[in-house]
Each structure stands twice: as C-alpha cells, then as structure tokens.
C-alpha cells in the first residue's frame, strides 16, 4: 500500500492554497458579497449566495494562480516573494498553468450560469487582472496598478449587479471606492519593498516618480476612496449611525494618508498599509450589518 500519494496530494493542495493568496482573495470575496447584499435583495437566498461566493472565489483564486504562474521569474528575484511555491520551483509551471486555467474556467462558467451580466463582470475582472495588468502592463509601466485596481473593483460591482439586476451608479461608486483604495494599499507596499521591485526590474511609482509624488498619490487616492465609500453608503441608504461610523473610519484613513505626506516614516507607511486593509474590511462589514439590521 502506497502512503506517499495522499501525503503528496495534501502537500500539493497546501501549496496551491498558498498560491491563491487566501487573505487577499478573502478580502475581494468579502467585497463581492457586500456588493450583493448592498442591493437589499433577499440575501438569504442560499442558492444565489453560495453560487456567488463559490464562483467569485474560484475566479479570484484562478486569476491569482495564473498571476503567480506568469510572474514566477520576477518573484524569484524578490526576497519577499522568492519562497512562493511557483518561484521556489516547488510546483511544475505547466501544472500550475493548467490548474489556474481550470479553476478560472470553473469560476467563470459557474458565474455565467448564475447570471450572464454577473458572469461578464467576473470575467472582466479576471481579464483585467491576468491579461491587462500582469501579462501586458506590469513590467512596462507603473500605471499598471490602475488596471490592477479596475480588476480589484470588479467583484463588488459584479456582486451589486447580481443583486439589483443592473449596473447602477451605486455599484460604480462602490467599485470606485475599491479602485481608489487599491493604490493606498499597493503604493505603501511598493514603498516598503522598493528595493525588491527594483531588483526584479518592475517599474513602480517610487522608482519612476520618487517618494514625494508617491506619497501625494497615496493621499489623493485615500481621499477619493473615502469619499466614494461614503457616497456609496449614502446611496445604499445606510443608517445614519453606520454612515457616521464609516465617516470616522474614513477620517482615520485620511489622517494616516496626510501623515505619510507631511511626516513620512516607515512606521506611518506600515500603519497606513495595515489600516487600509482594515478600513476596507470594516466598510464591507458595515454594508452587510446595515442590510441585516
């Protein structure tokens, strides 16, 4: 009896799980679910809710696996990413490509099966992330993050569109909130690991325009993200109490964004990076709580 195979399979599943970037995928999934619930549709329609969660998770995980496959050469040059299963050579690249394509196809297929419009938006997210951001622009221009942001904004737009049956201004504003939030998150990251990106030859805002412009961009995108989230909250019809709380959390984001502009330090940079994730998660929880309350 061969006991090596199940162990190998478990190890492989664990490696593929790491390739899906569970925290990042979980946060994007949370935005999709919040977008759906923001429609105030019957959110306990278990079939649709499970379908949304499953299809979105597969599509996000699939696109992340494909990104990891494509970027394995530059990941190997960066200290932060060189231990990833793809860059460390722990998985066969052809197999990673196959798995990425299958998982993505399953996610898109499931999404289209639920609703064609929803499926199209989920596909757009995957296309912008893998083809436009990773394959086409990431190694050419630091502005690639805009397209990365567009793909990151698709889950919330898709969720909202599935809930209301249309792409409405609230969905677009929610998507803009995520789109403007992403530079706050990624630019602080690219400042922290500037040397890594330089070693890999990936153009970033800090290496192209300098730290001053990058900090200004972070501040501006934080202001726009906060405004968009508050406007979307108002549009959804969020209770005043929850809107106040969203305003307070947005004020925290703005405070750190201005601190990084006028009193820059590694500490502030790190705290903004962490706070930005917390902010988005809290905003999504508020949307859901408002609907459920």
């Amino acid at each position: 009896m061969n006991t090596a195979t199940p162990l190998d399979l478990r190890a492989k599943i664990r490696l593929y799980w790491l390739l899906t970037k569970p925290l990042q995928s979980g946060l994007l999934l949370a935005t999709g679910l919040a977008g759906y619930m923001s429609a105030r549709c019957p959110v306990f329609n278990l079939d649709t809710l499970l379908g949304l969660a499953g299809s979105l998770f597969l599509a996000i995980a699939g696109s992340t696996i494909l990104n990891m496959w494509w970027d394995r050469d530059i990941d190997a040059c960066m200290r932060r990413t060189q231990s990833r299963p793809t860059s460390a050579g722990l998985l066969d690249p052809r197999e990673v490509l196959r798995v990425g394509l299958i998982v993505s196809a399953l996610g898109i297929g499931w999404a289209v099966g639920i609703d064609a419009r929803y499926g199209l938006l989920v596909f757009a997210g995957l296309f912008f992330d893998v083809v436009v951001y990773s394959i086409w622009l990431k190694r050419r221009t630091c502005w690639s993050i805009v397209w990365g942001g567009v793909s990151g904004a698709m889950p919330i737009l898709a969720g909202r569109a599935l809930g209301v049956g249309a792409v409405d201004w609230i969905g677009i504003t929610l998507a803009l909130g995520v789109l403007f939030w992403i530079p706050t998150h990624t630019l602080t990251f690219s400042m922290k690991f500037a040397a890594d990106y330089q070693a890999a030859g990936v153009p970033t805002f800090p290496s192209t325009y300098g730290l001053g412009v990058t900090r200004a961009a972070i501040a501006l995108s934080s202001v726009l993200a906060a405004l968009a989230m508050i406007l979307a909250g108002y549009g959804i019809g969020m209770a005043w109490g929850f809107l106040r709380l969203l305003g307070v959390l947005s004020a925290g984001l703005l405070l750190l964004a201005f601190a990084i502009t006028f009193r820059p330090s590694e500490h502030i940079n790190f705290s903004l990076f962490k706070y930005a994730s917390l902010y988005m998660l809290a905003a999504m929880i508020l949307v859901v709580m408002d609907v459920l309350s």
Partner: peptide, 29 residues
Amino acid sequence: VAIGIEGVGTFSILAYTIGFGILLIAILL
C-alpha cells in the same frame, strides 16, 4: 458611534462622534 448616541440631537451627536471616533482610531492605531 453607530448606535449608542442615537436620539441625542445633532449637536451632541456630532460632539460625541468626534470623542468616540478619536477613541476608536486611537485603539486601532
């Protein structure tokens, strides 16, 4: 911020929101 100060009038809500909001952001930081 969200629930505990409901119904106390706009002026006081604003003042309490600043107070408890500062507390919240300080704790998160």
